[in-house]
């Protein structure tokens, strides 16, 4: 029922932990496309997490007969939205300052 939000919690913790690790280990050297390695890694993980959300959502929408299942789908969407929004700072904000 709450799988969407559980996945968000996992995604959020992963991004936060990776960010902390990246900044403290000094992966700030520039990678490709003029972005730092830390930022590239975060971007890649964020996008794959969004993909995981979409897969979960496709699995959730297969059944929508009971109200519990419909609530589960809504929570799947909320999880997806939350991961997109809480990860958005990766794109627009500088990494380790």
């Amino acid at each position: 029922m709450v799988s969407g939000l559980v996945l968000w919690a996992v995604a959020f913790s992963t991004l936060y932990a990776l960010h902390g690790l990246g900044c403290s280990s000094g992966w700030t050297g520039s990678g490709t496309f003029g972005l730092s390695w830390a930022k590239l890694l975060l971007l890649a993980v964020w996008i794959s997490l969004i993909g995981t959300h979409c897969i979960l959502l496709r699995w959730l929408v297969r059944r929508k007969d009971t109200q519990m299942e419909r609530i589960g789908i809504a929570i799947g969407w909320i999880g997806l939205g939350a991961t997109v929004v809480t990860g958005a700072p990766i794109v627009v904000v500088s990494s380790c300052v």
Binding site: V85, A88, P89, V92, V93, S94, V97
Partner: peptide, 18 residues
């Protein structure tokens, strides 16, 4: 809220010591 968040991140970014 999304408009506000975008504005806020922009202001926050400009206040950084870069």
């Amino acid at each position: 809220l999304m408009v506000l968040l975008g504005f806020a991140l922009w202001v926050g970014e400009r206040n950084l010591p870069t």
